[in-house]
Design a protein around this nucleic acid. Sequence first.
DNA 1: ACAGTTTCCCGTAAATGC
DNA 2: TGCATTTACGGGAAACTG
Lengths: 446, 446
Amino acid sequence: LSLLRKLVANALVVAKQPAMSSLQQRPLMLKTRVRFSVTVRFLANLPVFKDLLKVKPVFDKDVQEAKTIKGFRHFEFNREECKVLDVDTPDGGLVAEFGHMFLKEKRGRYKGSSETRLGVTEELHIIKFVAEFKHAGLECNLEASSLPVIVISSTNQVLSAWASVMWYNTLSTSEPRNLSLFADPPPLTWQQLSQVLSWQFLSVGKRGLDEDQLAMLRDKIVGDGPDDLVHWSKFSKNEGAWIWIDGILDLVKKHLVDLWRDGCIMGFVSRKRTLTLLQEKQTGTFLLRFSETNKDGAITFSWVEHTNGETHVHAVQPYTKPELSGMCLPDIINLYSLKAETNVTGNPLRYLYPDIHKDTALGRYYKNSPLSATQKIIDGYVKRTNIPVSTFPTPPPSPPREIPFTDMDMDMDTEISMDLDQLLQELYPDFFGPGTSSQSFADYSS
Amino acid sequence: LSLLRKLVANALVVAKQPAMSSLQQRPLMLKTRVRFSVTVRFLANLPVFKDLLKVKPVFDKDVQEAKTIKGFRHFEFNREECKVLDVDTPDGGLVAEFGHMFLKEKRGRYKGSSETRLGVTEELHIIKFVAEFKHAGLECNLEASSLPVIVISSTNQVLSAWASVMWYNTLSTSEPRNLSLFADPPPLTWQQLSQVLSWQFLSVGKRGLDEDQLAMLRDKIVGDGPDDLVHWSKFSKNEGAWIWIDGILDLVKKHLVDLWRDGCIMGFVSRKRTLTLLQEKQTGTFLLRFSETNKDGAITFSWVEHTNGETHVHAVQPYTKPELSGMCLPDIINLYSLKAETNVTGNPLRYLYPDIHKDTALGRYYKNSPLSATQKIIDGYVKRTNIPVSTFPTPPPSPPREIPFTDMDMDMDTEISMDLDQLLQELYPDFFGPGTSSQSFADYSS
DNA sequence: ACAGTTTCCCGTAAATGC
DNA sequence: TGCATTTACGGGAAACTG
């Protein structure tokens, strides 16, 4: 999520007449000590007022919350500055642009006795633009308000600030501006939240979430509670859904935009459903799904194998962002190999679910193109590629496990995994003996 | 290279008596807008003076160069501040510590008519500490000078600043302090430079450079000129030796400290010498050498192969820092495999030059330990490793080429490589036909 | 002691200046 | 215009602070 650095106040409103402002009701995000610019536009397009209107930005003017919410932070601009509204060249309106502005915190937070206490990314601030208008004995005050602003001091707060943005935006389509929204934040219906989440993927990856993906998310986030409501604290808290989804959004943005846009990634599918879907398909059918445990975004592929009348579904250890920096997912899929002790190697991945040949689905994304593959020597050096290899997993697939957010906890999750490993060891002791996988390639010329 | 952030002025000298200062003659590096601290210590250990000495740091006081060298930058401290010398708790000396200081550039460079023009990392500045001493009618001025200071504004200048530091330090062991050193910088003898370079490796990797390594560097840097002198402009310029060596230092620091410290890396060996050394050894003998073309530090391995009475020496495409972040060099060596069309795979690397088995030399650094390799499934996921693979390079090794810095130029170098490829293609057309290296693994279950 | 919050600063990219 | 130098700021980590 890149920071919004351009704050545009579209309206300068005549005092006491809060007309206009057909603004989208979205809060903005500003980082202290980072430059931004604001443009104020006088919507009444009257060049007559030229040179008569002096505008000045004021932070949190008349904001009640600043004096009632305990610990509410105070900020100020780097400089006190007035600007005269001038004619905008293209369309002739009156504008003033404040450039090179930044925000710094003023010492002395409000230490009221109020019981409400907000996290910094739950504080909603306002930038007001005030202007005096004096002409021919007439005198009146003009005021225009920016959208609500969330002020952060570090990029590590973008995550939770963005959660606030989404929550506020969704609720503000129905309610009027409420800067105390997070003092007692209303829940969202799943219908509302799912739409917002889908938009995030649309915005980052040019494709929203489909019914199946949303259904999986609904199971994880809402569970089978009595109602369809998602509560703010549950959504935004450390182990909540948002941190996980945001990690995936970032993963998509950095490494999977094309694949996601073209619908190659099923992504949000439970293990259980993966099993159900794949076991009916032919050997070599695989699908891509996001890790449900990795908080930083990770993706794995699962594939099905029918041998000797048995059906196995396997899933590879999820790939993380640093790993995908080394090799893109299509190449990984293209090169992935299984290795048995007998040294027979092969790629178990053949058809992207439901039945599209992997080269048809992903061929256009391969970086290791056949062309460059013909060059075995470059600049006198022997070329090389990394081949992702697993040792042949003949044990059956792990039993599916569901991890609803409602009760999710990393420690518990780890324990489940341990039990699972133990179970596997009991069922298939042969596969857990002392192995030699890292040495079992035939030694060269031996 | 991490920035030196602690500037310690050990001496406060009575005016006109530049005694003491058994300081190492090393310039320091300071970055504008980055905090540092200075401690001034009054070496005459007399607590009698307590509360009588007020010290104040002044930047470039009385520095002639600031007024004679064209474009010389001016700086000032973030605040004017005097401090009273106080008793230092442990040893009873008089000290004042200036913390939270930083430097910012003052507008208005000196635009003298002098013909000398220095790069910013060639400017040598001074911080002086001045004190007035008044007692019983007596009055005198005390002054102490810091070591020379190189002021940079970005970490991208550390590279060339460090070159200046080395040059200055080497020359200052014989000459007195000379802030105009780089106006007409004297050359260093190879003897001097080689010692400095060896120190860099000692400092970064706990092991200096041996005779063979220095001989190779001498060939590259001095060539076979009439004398042993290395000139500043040649050393520090963009295509000079330092940028290349610094890239290697950084590579060692980030990914190869252990290997370097234990002497596993021959590193500075020419291609020609690599050929000579390896062709006498048994098949599977390899050595590690740094890339001579990659400016950001890269390492490759060369190995020898005797088959059918022919001897071939091959070198793998060099590994860069980002690649080594994904897998450490010992693991790469341990897992490296050659692949022929017949699907026979194997690791051609067996003995670290001269004849140490690779597991003996590198085994302790393997991250993919046999223990973890026994686990084929983790948390229900199939484990995986990346195996670095090359397609069998049957053509003979590339003809050795020497790249002396004296005439080195990247463009030319690239052309040489192109010619080399063309040559290889003419000699061994079979190996440049349409290949299938990325698909030639047997397809799973086909 | 600790968690939420801010500062610090490297390293890269972009902007600026000459 | 190109190169030298500075600024900008994301991101990770340390420092702060109640």
